[in-house]
Design a protein around this nucleic acid. Structure first.
Length: 481
RNA sequence: GGUCCCAUCGUCUAGCCAGGUCUAGGACAGGUGCCUCUCACGCACCAGACAGGGGUUCGAAUCCCCUUGGGACUACCA
């Protein structure tokens, strides 16, 4: 049987990292098995759904390289893939349920429902619909339905238990008395998630549902629906929820959750993917870095671990640094330019300076700041310099810097070693520690106490300009009277 | 409150299903050192966990039970 997976995000906000996480698994599993991966938009909440968010979701997943075989954008044999456009289908299926007595119309107002909930809370009773309208005569309900606002609810048999197999956890048994008479069709005619996902997953031929574990408690409703329709449920695999540091479900208040943010920060898509895959899965005992093809080749849903992983950016940073260093120089240059991280730079010029920066970049966005001194004179950070030379005489340092400036100009174009030797000799002749001289030059030329290697930096800046910056700093160390 | 899920270093995890090879392995972060003109990279080393208690067994991180802790759900949101 062809493997068919899906992801069903709601277009109610920025594209979410959790969507990427679940999509990755679903996409990879379909791909590994030569199956189909469907992206379905769950936009049945008319108040919160926005078309622009749908576009962003598609774009963010495309950025990651996760391309659905079927989606609102490319269509497919089971179109439409937007639930708001599938209303007739849900109405028709609700009708079937109504006819077989597995669902009923409910005319209760939201006010009554709210009051009911308060009562139940106060009495510490189980929460849920009390079934008032379930007692209505069906013919009578049908009559009222023509003119009165109402919803359609699932008629849950409260006796016994519902059991199902979760691929990661084994059998899960839930008492039916805890299952609510869930609303299937809202008063605006839109289906709820429960109704829509069951109907769509069945109609679209989905064979395995991989989604977040927050859905486990509602699986019985879904199982009952499959049963009411006479359908066989797909396999269920509930993946753990990504967590904040305090273990609560990941949230934008405590973590960056927008995929747009990761792109803007200069995380490589392959790094984010690798990192996300690591949250619950790894190919082999010790291997942590792998490319997406390897992931697709080896991914096995049943081996996803069940503990909720705390989302930790420091590990992502490490993965990103590794992936950056694994990039061919030309490719890194391309990414910097196309991602907008190197404004004013051409790929060709970038190629010449990248050897100095590639092992210093954690995020692509680090480049602009680290390389600023190549394009303009950066205000020297004296706080970086002064502590390093506090044992030296400022006048001596200034004089040595001035001399070094001359030397650098005179020896422009020379190889690194002879110039370095000359600088060392210069420091020695002035009674300076080599490090003090170099630090002075570094702060003068790059503005910072931490920078790429000095001589190559000077070559890139240009000997004349470098010398100018050095003289300027020297003058500052000993102000002329 | 009720229901369900989960539980190995600070974090991500291997090991658990098929108990012994586990004085529990790796990675990130942290510490120390090496390299070195700084930072970074790289390398080496150090520190750091089976939540607790019962059971089963010759033997339990691994199986069972209880406790504790954490989480999710409990909407005409998904």
């Amino acid at each position: 049987m062809t493997v068919v997976t899906r992801v069903a995000p709601s277009p109610t906000g920025d594209p979410h990292v959790g969507t990427a996480y679940v999509s990755l698994f679903n996409w990879a599993w379909a791909k590994r098995n030569g199956g189909r991966f469907i992206l379905r938009i769950e936009d049945t909440d008319r108040a919160r759904s926005r078309p622009e968010h749908e576009v962003q979701i598609l774009e963010a997943l495309a950025w990651l390289g996760i391309v659905p075989d079927e989606s609102p954008a490319v269509g497919g044999p089971y179109a439409p893939y937007r639930q708001s456009e599938r209303g007739a289908l849900y109405a028709e299926h609700a009708q079937r349920l109504l006819a077989s007595g597995r669902a009923y119309r409910c005319f209760c107002t939201s006010e009554r429902l709210a009051a009911l909930r308060e009562e139940q809370k106060a009495a510490k009773a189980d929460l849920g619909y009390d079934g008032l309208c379930r007692a209505l005569d069906p013919a009578e309900a049908e009559r009222r339905a023509a003119s009165e606002e109402h919803v359609v609810r699932l008629a849950v048999d409260k006796a016994g238990t519902t059991r199902f197999i979760d691929l990661l956890r084994g059998e899960i048994v839930i008492e039916n008395r805890t299952v609510d008479d869930q609303v299937l069709l809202k008063s605006d005619g839109m289906p709820t998630y429960h109704m829509a996902n069951v109907v769509d997953d069945h109609l679209m031929g989905v064979t395995i549902i991989m989604r977040a574990e927050e859905w486990i408690p509602s699986v019985p409703k879904h199982v009952m629906l499959y049963d009411a329709f006479g359908w066989t449920p797909p396999t269920f695999a509930h993946v753990p929820l990504l967590r904040n540091a305090d273990k609560s479900k990941i949230s934008k208040r405590k973590n960056p959750t927008s995929l747009l943010w990761y792109r803007e920060q200069g995380y490589l898509p392959e790094a984010l993917l690798n990192f996300l895959a690591l949250q619950g899965w790894r190919p082999d005992g010790d291997v942590e870095l792998f490319d997406v093809d390897t992931f697709v080749e080896r991914f096995e849903p049943s081996r996803i671990s069940t503990g909720g992983p705390v989302f930790d950016l420091t590990k992502l940073d490490w993965v990103n640094g590794e992936k950056i260093r694994a990039l061919a120089p030309g490719e890194l240059a391309r990414r910097l330019v196309s991602g907008g991280f190197a404004a004013g730079w051409t790929e060709e010029r970038l190629l010449a300076v990248l050897p100095l920066f590639r092992e210093r970049l954690v995020r692509l966005s680090d480049f602009a700041d680290q390389a600023r001194y190549l394009r303009e004179a950066v205000e020297p950070c004296l706080d970086d310099l002064l502590p390093k030379i506090k044992k030296e005489d400022p006048g001596v340092v200034a004089a040595a810097l001035a001399e070094a400036a001359d030397l650098l100009e005179a020896r422009a174009g020379q190889a690194d070693e002879p110039r370095e030797e000359a600088l060392r000799a210069l420091a020695a002749s002035r009674g300076l520690k080599v490090g003090s001289l170099f630090m002075g030059l570094r702060v003068a030329v790059t503005g910072r106490g931490a920078s790429p290697p000095l001589l190559p930096s000077i070559d890139l800046v240009g000997a004349a300009e470098s010398a100018r910056r050095v003289r300027e700093l020297a003058a500052r160390l000993v102000p002329a009277c």
